[in-house]
Amino acid sequence: MNLRLGTRASLLATTQARTIADELRALGHDVEMVEIVSEGDLTQAAGTSLVGSATGVFVNALRDALNDGRIDLAVHSLKDLPTAPAPGLVIAAIPGREDPADAVVARDGLALADLPLGARVGTGSPRRISQIVRQRPDLVVAGVRGNIDTRISKVHSGEYDAVILARAGLSRIGRLDQITEVLDPLTILPAPGQGALAVECRADSPAAAAIAALDDAHTRAAVTAERTLLAELEGGCSAPIGAYARIDGDRLLLDAIALSPQGTYAIRQSAEGDAADGAALGARLAQNMLAAGANSLSDEQSPQPTAAQLNTMGGAAAPTQESAQA
């Protein structure tokens, strides 16, 4: 089958797309790479920024190219995709996942715990900010823009003492040698879907069957649990959210955390269930977290949690964890 694969022109995006193209070629398909330029790419090149989510602009540009027939499939970082399905499109494959952990790139080979008091740490992720300041409230956490190499260069230039990035992205573009610490994903929980790729196509496309051969059942089960949890929490909670699911035999284990913006309050819970039904597990854990008060964490000035909610909230210490089993 002849397939046109859409990708952004960035190093990370094209590297991810080439991985998928190579796997499809190994299955006997002809694959043509098609670069899709979005408004986000143009504004980044001009040194300006978008109002709103640039990530959303990049995703929409690829989806527009799918819908109007310019391409047959698109490769996304799964954590960038909205949890709501796109009309007429389907995620035909979720290949095997890279390590979903966050990683530290710091000056002098330092780990997060070894950074000096008041060190300047760069990240644009509210989830990372909330969890990092919960571990190290003395750090100055500041927003940082640019691609992976641009962010790393800000450490080498001394603008930042460290930046926090997804290990998966560093691995894909050959920058693992820059990492000074890989953060335990059960300590700093990753974004739902982090480390996984999504291969999307039109629901009625004959390419869907070819793409489905790349699907990894364990990865799909894990990220389905994480993204279902995120979707359920987004309905009543605007707090930063981290989630990490993994397979243990025929069981699926899921840990999740919702935090106030500055990490003052957090609700962390875990659950396990049948590996064949990640959606049910994610939905159940999300409802447990909402019942525990996750919808009251979006504002540091929100009313104080009830005594029952405090059973699953932490202060400066590590958050209390509750478990639920199917």
Rank of each mutant, 00 (worst) to 15 (best):
I267D: 01
N67V: 09
R151H: 04
V59Y: 05
A286V: 02
N147W: 06
R151N: 03
I36H: 07
I179L: 08
R227E: 09
A166V: 02
L24Y: 05
V141L: 06
G263I: 00
G314P: 02
A326Y: 10
G293A: 07
V37A: 08
G242C: 01
G146H: 01
A245G: 13
G143T: 08
R268K: 12
S38Y: 07
V133H: 00
A308W: 12
A119I: 10
A113H: 14
L112D: 08
R167Q: 14
E23T: 09
M289S: 11
A292L: 05
D277C: 05
D22Q: 14
R127I: 03
G69P: 01
Y160R: 11
D274H: 05
A101E: 04
A316H: 14
V37D: 10
D184H: 08
Q325C: 10
P82A: 09
R246L: 12
N67P: 00
R18H: 07
T224P: 01
G169D: 12
M313I: 12
E234N: 14
A266R: 04
V155C: 10
R8P: 06
R134D: 00
S205I: 00
R151Q: 13
R25C: 08
A317H: 14
P305L: 08
G96A: 14
Q287L: 04
S157E: 12
G96F: 07
D204H: 07
I132C: 02
R175Y: 04
A26Q: 13
V163G: 03
R246A: 12
R246K: 11
Q178H: 09
I71A: 04
S153A: 15
L281G: 01
G88D: 03
A243F: 00
E159Q: 12
V31L: 07
A294W: 00
D108V: 03
Q321I: 15
D177A: 13
A326T: 11
G158W: 00
L5T: 05
A316I: 09
D274L: 09
A317D: 15
N311W: 13
G69R: 08
G249C: 05
I94R: 13
A9P: 06
I132L: 11
L252F: 04
D149E: 15
